[in-house]
Amino acid sequence: MSAIRIVRNYPHPLHLVWRAVTDPELVPLWTATGAGARMEGFTPVEGADFRYVAKPKPGWSGVVLCTVLEVREPTVLRYSWQDEGGGATTEVAYRLEPHAGGTRFSYDHTGFTGIGGYFMAKILATVRTKMLAQGLPVVLDHLDETGTLRPDSTLRPKAL
């Protein structure tokens, strides 16, 4: 079985990191380093279905179906992840904890099986690493203390 684990430390308070990774208006701003995925229908309630919609690519519709499995705001979000076209259902977990005056964010994506899963995990790991190293820090830097984009922010989601 293959898995993705990425741990990043951000010099921002826990509530701001939580907001940036769970607010459907903010998510496309940091996922834009990947495919600019939008969260559609997301609510932080266990059992709620939602989807990520990104720019389609050859062999992929750009849609991922998800179900919220666990929420402990502002420290844990777990959800299932399945390509709209079918295939194995995997699991994504966000874990946040205070760390050195900021927040430690742990991203885990587990459940990849077989040779196809191995390659999918490798591809997704590259994209996720870029999003969490480059995209999310920029969004966090553009938030005010309430977790809202500052009025002078130039961040805008990419068109799909």
Rank of each mutant, 00 (worst) to 15 (best):
R95A: 05
L155S: 05
V7G: 04
Y10P: 03
G86Y: 10
H15W: 00
Y79Q: 13
P58F: 02
N9V: 15
R72E: 13
H12L: 10
V64Q: 04
T148N: 09
W30N: 02
H109Y: 06
P58T: 10
V139C: 08
G135F: 10
V127R: 07
L69Y: 05
T126D: 15
I4Q: 05
V139H: 06
M39L: 09
G117F: 01
L69H: 05
M120H: 06
V92D: 03
M39F: 15
P58N: 11
L69R: 12
Q134V: 15
S61P: 15
F42T: 02
G59F: 07
R8A: 10
V76L: 15
W30G: 04
A32L: 06
P56V: 02
F50W: 12
L26D: 03
V139Q: 04
R156H: 09
G87Y: 07
P24T: 04
Y107T: 03
V138F: 07
S106R: 09
A54E: 14
M120Q: 14
V21E: 00
V92G: 00
G117W: 02
A48S: 15
V138T: 12
S106Y: 00
F105D: 00
L136Q: 01
G117Q: 05
L140S: 03
A133F: 11
G116P: 08
E73H: 09
A35E: 10
W18L: 11
A125T: 13
M131G: 01
P24A: 00
T110D: 14
D83L: 10
W18N: 06
T146C: 06
T103C: 14
V21S: 01
F119W: 14
D49P: 09
A20M: 05
T22D: 09
A20K: 00
L140K: 02
G116A: 14
P74N: 10
E84D: 13
F105W: 07
D49G: 14
G117S: 06
Y94C: 08
F50K: 05
P58K: 11
G111N: 11
E25Q: 15
R5M: 04
L124G: 08
V68M: 01
A54R: 07
R104L: 14
P44S: 11
K57F: 12
F50L: 02
A48K: 12
E25H: 14
L160V: 12
T126Q: 15
T31P: 06
V63S: 07
L69F: 03
E91F: 01
S61E: 11
G114A: 08
Y52M: 06
A100D: 14
S106W: 04
V139A: 04
G111A: 12
R78V: 11
E84P: 05
G114H: 09
G86S: 09
L16D: 01
T148G: 03
T126K: 14
